[in-house]
Design a protein around this nucleic acid. Structure first.
Lengths: 342, 342
DNA sequence: CTGTTAGCGCATTCAC
DNA sequence: GTGAATGCGCTAACAG
């Protein structure tokens, strides 16, 4: 053991972090020249830049973006609000969002909104106090007061993973109503009349259910489970659905996690998929294509949503006005073994 | 359609956001009194507070934490670095971390480190430029230069999900070496000699493998798959493992996702679990307990890691010196059906 | 190409 | 209890 665990090796510890002032002095130039050498190199001679670079090394200078942002009014941050970080659904989107923004020098501030509309207002305030250059909202902003606040801020806002007639500002998503309708149409085309639904109790899942019902044309046996949905809840849901409707032939699940649970429970009960029971999920999670049987599901391009949301924001930050402030990324049904596909 | 999609309803749009100055004027008090009424109400009379509160409402004032932090040297942010947001492993930890910090008024800034040690340095710089009040690092900081930089910053740092003899500052984690050893011991106790490993190619998984080997006392057939691991990779891994070692009796997987794939592939091949093949995962993901057969796995208390990391940081921010800067949260093997458990 | 001057919005000294 | 001055670290205007 080369070192006691509580005593880190030599740590000179900064009495005070170096400022741009220190760099300028060390380089023998003025403060603003140092600033430009780092931020606007085009305006400074090669030689000066080299001197400043050296001074940065020597002093161990790390810029203070808080101070810079105060004057320039650009914090170089974007705030993102998701219902909960552990909702797997949004992960690829958040990942791509983070990467695309990072490539442009922007950092993500993460907030959890819960599924509680009442908290939206407080959250908007909390985030706004960081003066982000953009705000990404997973889902629609429902609270009228929050919507009003967001507009007053003048900060670019992108609502994602949904569409509506009244965006706060910009939008990248798809129609959940159409998703439900499409799945119902797909079931009917297969000739399955005895259909059922296993759904999480969140807003968007409910809209998908509505779309489903609108095509079926009547109520259908439904089991609602609390968010976040999971394999365990899917197993329970199938059990309850079979009680309500023993002859159910095809089930639409509001997430692939639920669908995975339904398939698991079906296997345990000796139901053959798709001969006895067909199942369709939502989200095309990474496991969907590789389960046995593989899972038919609604595929949404999560990374594309993240990338396009980032690009809309970045365009706005550059002062541009995007031609298309509302983008429908669409969706498609990927047919696999759980509904008799390849 | 009550409103064209590109024309949001009435938006007065702020010419400039209200500042504390505006609030003070509107309330008929001085700037500093307004500041205190909001931040240190104890120092101000009830009546004044009421006036200021009203002025805040009237002006729509939202504090600018960037400006406040510049002077007070507290940004009220914590930076968190994870290899990738989509690594399910860290999600419960990040979630709890976010919540615990939010409850104390701190916001999380999220960064992705990738699995690339070379990038650590650049990342530390990027983060440090936001002047966070604390930094959470998923995994150990390996690059010596990054370690040195972190120390110089003087910012509290917590390395999580691992333990070592030489923390940069504080630590909350467990021994991956011991995890591997424990699983190997468990397999041997069951009498399984023909063992194999399916592992992701990340640092911590490799250490667990080392621990496993140290107890087994010899090399064992191993399949390494690229991170991030998934069900699909688990299926492939079992195929390859069966080629290398047709008689393999028990497999240790570096994640539950991989294990799920191994179980799927085993079912497809008609292998009975646990009679023909036993499987142990790592992480106790939410699905592990509910699969059929249920998955034996190594359970780690992810939320506890997040909570304790947050508390260490918050204590430091209050100026306290935690008695225990290195916390071992331990782990345990949860025996389920995939190894013959209940 | 470089420098001087003035703040960004707030909180920390001090005074009263 | 309240207030006036001062500056956190940096950058946007203008000048030279």
């Amino acid at each position: 053991m080369p070192n006691a665990s509580s005593t880190p090796d030599a740590a000179p510890a900064s009495p005070r972090a170096a400022t741009l002032h220190d760099v300028a002095r060390s380089a023998g130039v003025s403060l603003i020249t140092a600033s430009r050498a780092l931020g606007n190199p085009d305006l400074v001679s090669e030689k000066t830049i080299a001197k400043v670079r050296q001074a940065v090394e020597a002093t161990g200078y790390i810029p203070n973006l808080l101070a810079g942002g105060l004057k320039s009014r650009r914090s170089m941050t974007v705030a993102a609000l998701v219902p909960a970080i552990s909702v797997a659904q949004f992960l690829p989107t958040v990942q791509t969002l983070t990467e695309t923004l990072a490539a442009a020098g922007y950092q993500l501030i993460l907030g959890q909104s819960g599924y509680d509309h009442a908290r939206e207002e407080a959250l908007v305030n909390t985030l706004a106090s960081r003066r982000p250059d953009g705000i990404v909202f997973a889902g629609l902003v429902h609270s009228p007061k929050a919507r009003e606040q967001l507009r007053r801020l003048g900060t670019p806002v992108v609502e994602i993973w949904d569409l509506s007639e009244r965006p706060v500002d910009m939008m990248v998503g798809f129609s959940h109503l159409k998703v439900g309708a499409a799945v119902a149409g797909y079931f009917l085309a297969k000739g399955w009349q005895q259909v059922g639904i296993a759904t999480g109790d969140d807003q968007r899942a409910s809209v998908r259910r509505e779309g489903f019902l609108s095509v079926i044309g009547r109520e259908v046996p439904t089991v609602v489970v609390p968010a976040p949905s999971s394999l365990a809840l899917g197993r329970r849901a199938l059990g309850e659905l079979l009680q309500k409707s023993p002859g159910v032939r095809a089930i639409y699940c509001s997430s692939d996690q639920l669908a995975q649970g339904v398939l698991t429970e079906a296997a345990v009960r000796g139901l053959r998929v798709p001969q006895d029971l067909a199942v369709c999920g939502f989200g095309d999670a990474d496991f969907a294509a590789h389960m046995a049987p593989s899972l038919t599901t609604v595929q949404v391009d999560g990374p594309a949503i993240g990338r396009q949301a980032a690009e809309l924001l970045l365009a706005r930050c550059r002062g541009e006005t995007p031609a298309q402030p509302v983008i429908d990324v669409g969706f498609c049904i990927v047919e696999r073994e759980s509904t008799g596909g390849a």
